[in-house]
């Protein structure tokens, strides 16, 4: 058998395999579903909010006082899973909303605790 014929056979077999796959999954493989888009939107919105909080002058100054570089925290935040990010975002907004009476130092302290809990920083190793 010639090389050309072999190629023909292999091509036919593989395209039959693709066709049968395509028959059942024609619009599933490779398609990004709507929930994935929503997750991505939620993720970038959460990052934006966390960034806005961490980069506030008063918060950033306080973080630095605690020995934490806000930029470094941000870099680590980018690598958190979406679930972790949403949990962090939710906790920051919940805790800081309730912490207004504690003032900015209290709020930053809470943020640090939360960052510690989700493994972004380890300021409190000694606790």
């Amino acid at each position: 058998m010639t090389m050309k014929l072999w190629k023909q056979i292999v091509l036919t077999i593989s395209s039959v395999a693709i066709l049968s796959l395509g028959f059942t999954q024609v619009s599933v493989a490779g398609v990004i579903d709507t929930q994935q888009l929503i997750d991505a939107e939620n993720r970038s919105a959460a990052i934006d909010r966390i960034e806005a909080t961490l980069l506030r002058d008063d918060v950033a100054a306080q973080l630095i006082e605690f020995g934490v570089d806000p930029d470094e925290v941000l870099a680590r935040v980018q690598h958190m899973t979406t679930a972790e990010l949403l949990s962090l975002d939710g906790q920051i907004s919940e805790q800081t909303a309730g912490a207004s009476a504690l003032g900015i130092i209290g709020a930053v302290f809470l943020i640090l605790l939360i960052l510690e809990l989700v493994g972004v920083t380890d300021v409190f190793k000694s606790i």
Binding site: Q91, E94, Q95, A97, G98, A99, A101, L102, G106, F109, L110, L113, I114, E116, L117, F124, I127
Partner: peptide, 18 residues
Amino acid sequence: KRRLSILGIVAILSGCAT
């Protein structure tokens, strides 16, 4: 245990959140 104690602190501090 350490994390639990931190969680406890967060819970107490946020007690004023209604």
